[in-house]
Design a protein around this nucleic acid. Structure first.
Length: 1003
RNA sequence: GCUGAAGUGGUGGAAUUGGUAGACACGUUGGACUUAAAAUCCAAUGGCCAUUAUGGCCGUGCGGGUUCAAGUCCCGCCUUCAGUACCA
């Protein structure tokens, strides 16, 4: 019988599906274990071999846990709202729901063929109304909550209103907008309904506010900070500008401290925790209030700054405000007005990207105003400068040039004094910022103190004069939550007198209406502004034409939709529910039973997005009593990326020429030859036959272009060639390449010798380089083909065999023959003799052979179990290979050995394991067969092949009994002839004997 | 700049608490089988030197150190990758 992997894999995938082998039970005697993958966005490109890496790892762990007797929840679903489907819809008119549905079908087929043990009965899709009903519901709960720093948790706004009624907001310690005014209980009671709502909005955990947002004109939407990478949008790489807009935001900043503290309670890698810690960016210091003195303004002003170095306050020689700071216009003197306004305008024009790219240029303007130093009462000039960010702290700094390099550079540039307040430090060249070595001088009451003492004292003194206090600042900003897009969750909100109101929860879900086009309206409203009919109508009210009609009164609806991370922030709870109840997002029993995710595997690119937002929502749901866990993911592993090996060809860059209008045949040049001519030991004009002949063939106009450009430089640029045109020797299939794109049909190819070649004569070598696997780089490898050619088990094994799970590693399909060969050898262990008939002996083996085989088995059990527990899957694949090689050499055919071996292999290569398991006579799936127990007795050795080293260098080995005493080992080794040979008559100074390990002779 | 991770053969990568560096594969070379190819099997494979064989020297990014013994520990660098970017 042959190892027919295609048939075997199909057979078992069908059986698993029919028998629901991997369905998790919500009521079970067994202990629970929850293994989760980050659910995919179903893109049109389908899966490439990089995608399943994490899924394979989690699947191995899930299967292992089943063998270990756990009731395992291992679900899968789709993050099915998102930009690409909508961009596609804009281009083609195809409804995103249809494209998404089609993409999901492809994903499902591709996932199924790899043989994952998912419980598909629990599948979720974030774009399904019965799912996003609960996303909307959570949004409403957030809207109806505020954060109480006193109890340190979120509470219903009713409790806030009670406080306002009793005491106003003067003594409350709550998370709120910076510009919240102070009022008394009487004032509160006097406010109108709308005014009250306006104030409450400043406290809600999701709120509407005019803020500076990242606007992406190309996508026509705002983006959150984590959706911007290097100043451009994460999706599509479009430029992003700052813009003031009224948007929904999430008050995640209220949770900054708890998100930070919570990291200590979870088992994530330090690398990932550090990314989140940096993103939260806690800094401890003080807020200090400076009074503006010499201003021409009639009313008096105060400038609040945040500093982490209150101890350096006596070194303040100027202040700097962000150009956008609200006080700038009020304090600027007449004389400076023109200059200041010009500067503000110039700064506003610069894009975020320019400002980022250009850190070195120092710019700023003096406002003409002065502030008074809180202690010395000296006047301090107030400047504006774009090195101060409006969005961090208070948008203003007290500049201490001797202690901060940026202030130092600014002071030097504008000739502002740099007073030295450090003892024994030279600041003539640069600022001194080392806290630990700081001794304060020239600073009145803190002279001679260190950083810690001085800081404490300054804060105390500031409090005494009412001009400051200790303060902690976080870099974490509130997250913008609205998107001006179609394909997302509609907000369950409408407006009354301009104030947002939530739709009653019994009317949820508010389903996404149909629109004609997926573009903004002519009035600039989001696409939902085009909707004429919304799906639900009830007795009390109806939604028609962008409006909610309630008892004859008409109210406008919210037309933005939620961002991609809304649905992914809580999906792990929905999986817990086996019955998909409509009345709860997950039943209490399910939530209590499954608790939280025990193992979460996914990419580290979600560190500051999904992984932070999920933690935030879970903490919120916990505060409000909807879930009983504080953190969603107990243990998290980031799988590394599988990289593709791209192929590059170098194309002559015609666009550098003078004429772009005429079509010109592309010229491709071998990298070797290009390097040759670049290195100048090859004079192009003299020797290059190929280029001469190309020029000969070109029209005179083209000739001129080519020659002209040559003179300037060698304008060849690397472009990607599809890796399917490249053979193992890195040679390009020229014919396929020409057929690939119309513009390449007439292309010229110059080989490494500088000769002109075509598909019939000569070879053209491509350059190869490893980069991210992506369709746009033409380096993707499709798992379908791998499964077809080698089988899913080979794919699974090979992905694991490539290297440590968390590491980035290049894909090379050629290597898969190694693991495929292993599976064939495993098959052969069961099918022996001339006809490869199934042959496993149930009777005991001969004595010596049996002992050897038991040793092989048990050393494999030990290693594989340790490996899985440590997520070191690559080393267990090696271990399997060693085991099968050994058992083959031992001619092992014993059921007592081979049966447990199958269970070990089963998590990795489940199809072949099931098939052989069945052939051994089992009627039940191998999936829940108990994991073999390791028994030390099989590994007990009586002797050890000792490495004998001289001065630390191993020279030979010597077999000695393990129970031999130290002294006897020394004696035996010294008496050994090879030892004497090595010593050549010298007497060893010292002999180190480590029993069971090594002997080292020092001489 | 700051934070984190990592540097081992031609390649992917192994190596318990410091104890035989290069497991297991890929690739390459040679051989067997075959009309041939594929498949399969066998052998060799870190570098250098020497050889009939035995053998010797050098080797885990670089420079130091600790130790009987260092890929592993300590100090100082270099390089690559990732995150962050005027965070006061």
């Amino acid at each position: 019988m042959k190892y027919n992997f295609n048939a075997i894999e199909k057979k078992w995938q069908k059986i698993w599906s029919e028998r629901q082998t991997f369905k998790a039970e919500n009521n079970s005697e067994k202990s629970k274990y929850y293994v989760l993958d980050m659910f995919p966005y179903p893109s049109g490109a389908g899966l490439h071999v990089g995608h399943p890496l994490g899924y394979i790892a989690s699947d191995i762990y899930a299967r292992y846990k089943r063998h270990k007797g756990f009731n395992v929840l291992h679900p899968m679903g789709y993050d099915s709202f998102g930009l690409p489907a909508e961009q596609y819809a804009i281009q083609t008119g195809q409804h995103p729901a249809l494209t998404t549905e089609a993409n999901i079908k492809t994903y499902r087929r591709q996932l199924d063929q790899i043989g994952f043990s998912f419980d598909w009965s629990r599948e979720v899709r974030t774009s399904n109304p019965e799912y996003y009903k609960w996303t909307q519901w959570i949004f409403i709960q957030l809207f109806e909550s505020w954060y109480n720093y006193e109890s340190n948790k979120a509470e219903h706004v009713d409790t806030l209103v009670k406080v306002f009624e009793a005491d106003g907001n003067q003594n409350i310690n709550a998370a709120c907008d910076d510009d919240t005014e102070v009022f008394s209980a009487d004032q509160w009671k006097a406010y109108s309904k709308v005014e009250k709502q306006h104030i409450l909005l400043k406290y809600r955990l999701t709120y509407l506010a005019e803020t500076e947002v990242n606007w992406c004109p190309a996508l026509g939407t705002v983006l959150a900070n984590d959706e911007i990478v290097n100043g451009v949008s994460e999706r599509g790489g479009h430029p992003v500008i700052r813009k003031k807009m009224t948007q929904w935001s999430m008050r995640i900043s209220a949770y900054a401290e708890r998100l930070l503290q919570g990291l200590d309670t979870i088992d994530w890698t330090d690398a990932l925790k550090d990314i989140q810690r940096n993103w939260i960016g806690k800094s401890v210091g003080a807020s200090v209030t400076f009074n503006v003195t010499a201003s021409e303004a009639k009313q008096s002003h105060q400038i609040e700054v945040f500093t982490t170095r209150p101890d350096t306050i006596f070194g303040t020689s100027f202040m700097t405000l962000a150009p956008e700071h609200e006080l700038v216009s009020q304090i600027t003197t007449e004389a400076q007005k023109a200059e200041v306004e010009a500067y503000i305008e110039a700064t506003a024009k610069r894009s975020e990207r320019d400002r980022m790219a250009d850190v070195k240029t120092i710019s700023g303007v003096f406002t003409g105003a002065y502030a008074e130093h809180p202690f010395t009462k000296e006047p301090i000039p107030i400047w504006i400068g774009d090195y101060v960010l409006a969005s961090y702290g208070t948008g203003a700094v007290m500049a201490v040039p001797c202690g901060d390099q940026r202030d130092y550079d600014f002071a030097k540039h504008f000739d502002i004094p740099i007073p030295n307040i450090f003892e024994g430090v030279d600041i003539s060249e640069e600022a001194f910022a080392d806290k630990d070595k700081t001794i304060i001088a020239n600073s009145d009451f803190i002279n001679g103190m260190n950083y810690k003492k001085a800081t404490k004292r300054v804060i105390y003194e500031l409090e005494q004069i009412g001009q400051g206090k200790g303060k902690t600042n976080y870099r974490l900003r509130d997250a913008v939550f609205s998107r001006q897009r179609y394909w997302g969750e509609p907000f369950p909100a409408y407006y009354v007198d301009g104030m947002p109101q939530m739709i009653a929860t019994e009317h949820l879900p508010l389903t996404l209406p149909e629109v004609e086009k997926y573009l903004p309206t002519e009035e600039g409203e989001p696409p939902l502004g085009r909707a004429t009919h919304w799906a639900w109508d009830t007795d009390q009210c109806a939604v028609v034409s962008n409006q909610l009609i309630d008892h004859e009164t008409v109210y406008p609806l919210e037309l933005n939709t939620m961002p991609g991370w809304a649905g992914s922030s809580w999906y792990f709870f929905r999986y817990m529910e086996d019955a998909k109840r409509n009345e709860v997002f997950a039943s209490e029993a399910a939530l209590n039973y499954w608790d939280s995710v025990d193992l979460y595997i996914g990419g580290s690119e979600h560190a500051t997005g999904h992984l932070l937002y999920s933690r935030f929502w879970v903490k919120f749901l916990y505060d409000r009593g909807y879930v009983s866990v504080n953190e969603p993911f107990k243990k998290l592993i980031n799988q590394g990326m599988i990289l593709g090996t791209s192929a590059f060809v170098y194309r002559y860059n015609w666009s550098l020429g003078i004429d772009g209008a005429i079509s010109k045949p592309p010229i491709f040049i071998s990298k070797t030859f290009l390097d040759k001519i670049k290195s100048k030991d090859y004079a192009l004009s003299d020797n290059c036959e190929a280029i001469d002949s190309i020029i000969g063939e070109l029209s005179s106009k083209h000739q001129a272009v080519f020659m002209e450009a040559q003179i300037r430089s060698f304008p060849f640029t690397a472009i990607h060639a599809d890796v399917s045109f490249i053979n193992a020797a890195n040679e390009l299939d020229i014919r396929k390449f020409r057929d690939w794109r119309e513009e390449f049909a007439e292309a010229y190819f110059i080989d490494s010798e500088g000769k002109l070649i075509n598909e019939d004569n000569g070879v053209f070598h491509v350059e190869r380089d490893v980069e991210k696997m992506s369709k746009s780089k033409f380096n993707v490898v499709n798992p379908d083909e791998i499964c077809e050619q080698y089988g899913a088990d080979s794919l699974r094994l090979y992905e694991m065999f490539l290297g440590p799970l968390e590491q980035y590693k290049p894909w090379n399909t050629a290597g898969i023959t190694g693991v495929h060969g292993f599976l064939k050898k495993l098959w052969k262990l069961f099918h022996q003799g001339e006809n490869n008939t199934f042959y496993v002996d149930a009777s005991p083996l001969g004595k010596s052979e049996g002992a050897e085989s038991f040793k092989t088995l048990h050393k494999t059990i030990k290693k594989v179990e340790e490996d899985i527990e440590n997520f070191s899957f690559n080393t267990s694949v090696s271990t399997f290979m060693i085991a099968v090689n050994e058992l083959t050499a031992q001619k092992c055919a014993s059921k007592a050995i081979l049966e447990p071996l199958l269970i070990l292999v089963s998590p990795y290569a489940p199809h072949i394991a099931e098939e052989l398991w069945e052939q051994l006579g089992h009627m039940e799936s191998i999936a829940t067969a108990p994991f073999p127990k390791f028994e030390e007795k099989h590994l007990v050795e009586s002797s050890k092949n000792y490495p004998i080293s001289f001065n630390g260098k191993m020279r030979f080995t010597l077999e000695l009994p393990l129970d031999m005493s130290k002294e006897d080992i020394e004696k035996t080794v010294l008496a050994y002839e090879k030892t004497q040979e090595q010593l050549q008559g010298r007497t060893p100074k010292k002999v180190i004997v480590v029993p069971g390990k090594i002997v080292n002779i020092v001489g």
